[in-house]
Amino acid sequence: MSGSAEGALERLSEASGREFPNLLAARARTAEGLKERRAQPASSDHDDDASVVLMGSWGRSEVTSKSDDDFMVLIDGGEREDVRPSIEDVKTVLPHAPGEQGIFSAPVFCDDLVEKIGLDGDHNKNLSRRMLFLLESVPVSSEAVYLTARDRVLRGYLDESIKDFRPPRFLLNDTVRYWRTICVDFAGSRMRS
């Protein structure tokens, strides 16, 4: 989806007659940073169904000097104990990885993203990971695993709700739910602090 966003920036520039030097610089910084990170494998021990995925500003191609290396180790399968590369291994090659495990810096199992859309199992963390994966993510390793997993997530929304109109409401509703969750959680966090 970041490819579409880049196209949108170019169209906006063309239509408005304005340039966007900061966004273009961030895009160049993102490309350079990705190249560096892809050249440094986190570990020689890499599961066949794993992909190290960067999220947020990396997925939007908007990396700045203050951006974190928000990552997950995506597994195209169900939950298990041992995941390679380990979170610790990945942190050794991502200089700005967040310290604590939360939404990021964790193994994420695609089966959870696909099979827990809605209902109790779809807690905020699962929803946020799924949406960031779809909307703002880019693979550092194993692009084929990343693409297969993303296709599975999209099919989780679309296969049972194919309709002859657009946009697909099931996916649209969950995207809206994600943005609503961000806003409500932000306000809730401020109230508590």
């Binding site: 296709d151 999209l154 099919r155 296969d159 709700s161 194919i162 309709k163 657009r166 697909p168 996916l171």
Partner: peptide, 8 residues
């Protein structure tokens, strides 16, 4: 085709 998974 991958852009059209949501329609018949």
């Amino acid at each position: 085709l991958l852009r059209c998974l949501d329609v018949p």
